[in-house]
Amino acid sequence: MSHALRPPAEPADADPTATAADSKLSPKAKAALSEGKKAERRLGLLLCAPAILIMAAVAGWPIIYSVWLSLQRYDLKFPDRTEFVGLENYVTVLSNPYWWNAMWVTVLITVVSVAVELVLGMALALIMHRTLVGRGIVRTSTLIPYGIVTVVAAFSWRYAWTPGTGYLAETVAGGDPVLTEKIPSIMVVTLAEIWKTTPFMALLLMAGLALVPDDLLKAAAMDGATAWQRFTKVMVPVMKPAILVALLFRTLDAFRIFDNLFVLTAGSQGTSSVSMLTYNNLIKGLNLGIGSTMSVLIFIAVAIIAFVFVKLFGTAAPGGDGGGRR
């Protein structure tokens, strides 16, 4: 990250052609970059400098520092016993059943919520895109789950499922305290996650839908395709890049689930996600070494997910080409 801060003089990009030109040119004519071009480069770097500096200082440096911390025995409750222990923390974490339980919980929530959201989000996107009446109202109301503070939504769900307070606890769960058991808790958390983020998925998919030309669908209809065939054979293939981007974004986002879990179960009954477990070790347990180790492991997991997406689906992933679209 820090090597983004290169000096403006860039020999590799500098004009290599002037020297090749014929010898009758005066040395003055070799001026590689005109004032305008130089000013442009200076301005470019100057404008990016604050963003680069902040990102380097608040994201770049800490991530390196956390790798260093993960190699230490470092517990704030016993600061005297701090020492370099190499990979010991990794062995501790990776051989710990709590970690693996949290990993499975996270993966389960991620897979289920993203899968359901894809289907639900597609339906919602189609409704928002094609509805004949009240398009504004539909779009406005779907933005509410997206915009609302996750903690607020989580409290709403918590009270809804709490016996004695909630309507869902009585009607759906028959008065059972669902949030005190592992599997029902995870289901409730997944539902809350789906409710909150389906609109985001739907919006991304809707943008993809907008890229499907109406004429193409008309042509398919003339060619004898049913509505379902038009959807599967024309729409989905054309909007595939948008679908993949939406999936990637949501998968990475779901993987960091924390807020909903914190409010709904606080990680009890083995419902911790990896983020939740890391938080508990770090802020509650004040064990910086172990916490950092988990941080690094989560980072690696996210990198693997992103890598797999990019590998499987090629350049459709965002950033495959900074300027390329259409």
């Binding site: 004009d15 002037a18 014929d22 040119l25 004519a29 001026a31 970059l33 005109s34 004032e35 305008g36």
Partner: peptide, 16 residues
């Protein structure tokens, strides 16, 4: 930018 050669407007070199 002009890579090589000269551009004159009203007799003055204006490349830069």
């Amino acid at each position: 930018d002009i890579t090589a050669g000269e551009l004159r407007i009203g007799g003055e070199r204006v490349n830069e």
